[in-house]
Design a protein around this nucleic acid. Structure first.
Lengths: 221, 221
DNA sequence: CGGTCCATGTGATTGTGAACACGAGAACGC
DNA sequence: GCGTTCTCGTGTTCACAATCACATGGACCG
């Protein structure tokens, strides 16, 4: 029997990427004491159009009221449940350079259900230091750290040369999801989810469009 | 005769986002002394499949040699030209918190054609400090800074509350492209290109899939 | 209690990107 | 100098995401 259909209706990847944006906007509305919100208002806050909001939210279920809108509190609860925010997923940050330290100090992770559980580096001058309340540990102890700390997600903030090795070690230690900040392509076995963020890459995309819109800009003046 | 084609063939957004990845891989190959590369090799390095590489590169023109591959040096030159890397675009980073400082210290920007031209904050204890060779200046002087420094791109690394205001100021000062790291939606007038990077958002997407693949994980143990 | 209003929810349509397969053409060996 | 081989380039097909339009059904007013 092939009853291996996912619990609910399958949610498109593009929608998954937008749900956290809605969730953020909804949280802000709740802080502001707003009780209900229409798809149009929410669309404006999230920077998309209303039809897309309704379509996206419909994947979660019919939580809106026709003629009125969505109850902020209730929708937020359902969305958090769907996004898995009800359970915290521990994070280990590997690499305590400038970026790693910034990430460790970045408050947004814990707030949104991803508590930083451990910090790791190989540099002897960094191991033992305390960053944002955590003692930096050595990469060699990764397996122990991941196992004992219930770490589920690894963040790579190392130099390019170390990235692949760190990814392998993270996978070996049992981490199931990896977020890679090193500007290089790393390979992971099937079953492990990988996402990458390349800070300079985003700038290059911006630069491309700017170059395209005004190719002669370098000439003027 | 339908010669009303834009300057060159229009390049799909998805392809634009991948070009810098190829460019990175090509640079590595050149450093390694490799002269030619096949679409398959390049695909492996970039983490995509060969057909996509060929399709993407074909948008730039026919720079490959059938039966042989692409000449690394030449392809890199053409790609840099297309990406606009031949002209540097100055960058101003607004917000010298942990993230802003990490970005200022991040070497990858200058290397790839985006020299950091100025650092800005409003905090009196930060203005005047030297970070990565640049003296932190006050937000009030933004217009002067952008004008004199030939700044073309602004990076927002401020708290959420300040993001929209900073975006407005950047636009007012003549910046044409903005990269927003603040986890909130900012609006810009037409003609200004905006991209956003939300560090926690990427984690949430990872978390969603992990939650989906093992929804009962919170129950065990 | 009935009618009107209004925003949701969804089926249909359009557009865009990914995957595929095959034709074209250059280098190399014989 | 001919044929073989290898890889690019691209037309076609397929899948998915965005958009649109309208029917649905609850809330509110009189």
């Amino acid at each position: 029997m092939m009853s291996s259909v996912p619990p609910r209706r399958r949610i498109p990847e593009a929608t998954v990427a937008r749900l956290p944006v809605y969730q953020r906007s909804l949280t802000e509305l709740r802080e502001g004491g707003v009780a209900t919100v229409s798809s149009e208002q929410l669309a404006d806050l999230a920077g998309v159009n209303a039809a897309k909001v309704r379509k996206d939210l419909s994947y979660l279920g019919s939580y809106g009221t026709r003629g009125v809108g969505y109850e902020v509190e209730y929708l937020l609860f359902q969305m958090n449940r769907e996004l898995g925010l009800s359970q915290d997923l521990g994070v280990v940050i590997v690499g305590m350079g400038n970026l790693g330290q910034a990430l460790a100090n970045y408050g947004g992770f814990g707030e949104r259900g991803f508590p930083v559980g451990a910090l790791v580096d190989t540099d002897a001058t960094k191991v033992g230091n305390v960053v944002h309340g955590h003692t930096v540990q050595h990469l060699d102890d990764l397996e122990d750290i991941v196992g004992k700390g219930r770490i589920r997600i690894g963040i790579i903030a190392t130099p390019v040369e170390a990235a692949q090795n760190v990814a392998d070690l993270l996978v070996g230690a049992g981490v199931e999801s990896i977020l890679n900040f090193a500007p290089t392509t790393v390979h992971v076995p099937e079953g492990v989810t990988l996402r990458k963020v390349d800070l300079a890459l985003e700038l290059q995309i911006l630069g491309f469009y700017q170059h395209r819109d005004a190719p002669d800009a370098a000439v003027e003046a």
